[in-house]
């Protein structure tokens, strides 16, 4: 583990920085590779990125429903604030998460992610395929997301991009689980503290929350992202 983690970081950072330049990367969330049957959820996410170019605010609202014991489908409406400070719809997205292995059965747990996103006002598309992993180390968990993104459309250049996300979490108590998150994409490397927690109610109802503060390390004098999310499962 002592060698594995730094080596993984170096390899991923070098691979991603060697690619073409970034255009629209946003810190979002690190996905876990797990799905539960009967899973239904509403989710709200917010990311606010402040850098030398100003503030980019993004919100996502979604509804997810398990299609089977191992697959969940989620639909998103993405909103953002434009340069005139008006908040409006930016796009919509469909996402499938697929739990590939039983939790704890193998050395690590594996899942897959597929996303298709379309911009609301332009004919621009983005398709993503990703591999999700999670490995337990006692009360710690290491979660990684390797993503391959293809963009095409009328205002974007047709290109492949790579993304890497990682979370190292300490499962302290259900309500508060501190973590460190790391994000790398073309032209972006960010790291920072994050917290997540879960509060259970009757039956299957539960509320999950996440909060993270990611500092960009890619050369800008100022590049901070605050991200938060609330997820209600029922």
């Amino acid at each position: 583990m002592k060698v594995f983690l730094p080596a993984l970081l170096v390899v991923v950072t070098v691979l991603i920085s060697a690619s073409v330049k970034a255009d629209n990367f946003n810190v979002d969330k690190v996905y876990h590779p797990y799905v539960l049957p009967f899973e239904r959820e509403f989710e709200w996410r917010l990311t606010s990125r402040q850098n030398d170019d100003g503030n980019v605010l993004m919100q996502r609202f979604s509804y997810g429903h398990a299609l089977s014991e191992r697959v969940v489908l989620e639909g998103y409406i993405v909103g953002s604030r434009d340069e005139y400070d008006d908040f409006g719809m930016e796009g919509y997205e469909l996402e499938i998460r697929w739990m590939l292995t039983e939790q704890g059965k193998y050395w690590a747990d594996w899942g897959a992610l597929f996303e298709l996103e379309k911009q609301h006002t332009t004919d621009d598309w983005e398709a993503t395929a990703g591999i999700l992993t999670e490995k337990e180390f006692g009360r710690f968990s290491l979660t990684t997301n390797f993503m391959l993104v293809y963009e095409w459309g009328e205002t974007v250049e047709n290109e492949f991009e790579g993304e890497f996300r990682m979370k190292y979490r300490y499962r302290w108590i259900p309500e508060v689980q501190p973590a460190v998150e790391f994000y790398a994409a073309e032209g972006y490397v960010g790291v920072g503290p994050a917290f997540m927690g879960i509060r259970r109610f009757d039956g299957q109802r539960q509320l999950k929350w996440e909060l993270g503060f990611i500092a960009g390390l890619n050369g800008d004098s100022k590049d901070h992202t605050l991200r938060m999310s609330l997820e209600y499962e029922f």
């Binding site: 797990y34 539960l36 049957p37 009967f38 014991e69 039983e102 939790q103 704890g104 059965k105 337990e136 968990s141 499962r171 108590i173 259900p174 259970r200 299957q204």
Partner: peptide, 24 residues
């Protein structure tokens, strides 16, 4: 169905009715 849940074990798993399931 029953959903086995354990923060201590870090596991969550649904066991369907009249069925069986494995938690590692």
């Amino acid at each position: 169905p029953e959903e086995i849940d354990s923060f201590d074990l870090n596991r969550e798993k649904v066991i369907f009715g009249n069925s069986k399931g494995t938690i590692y």
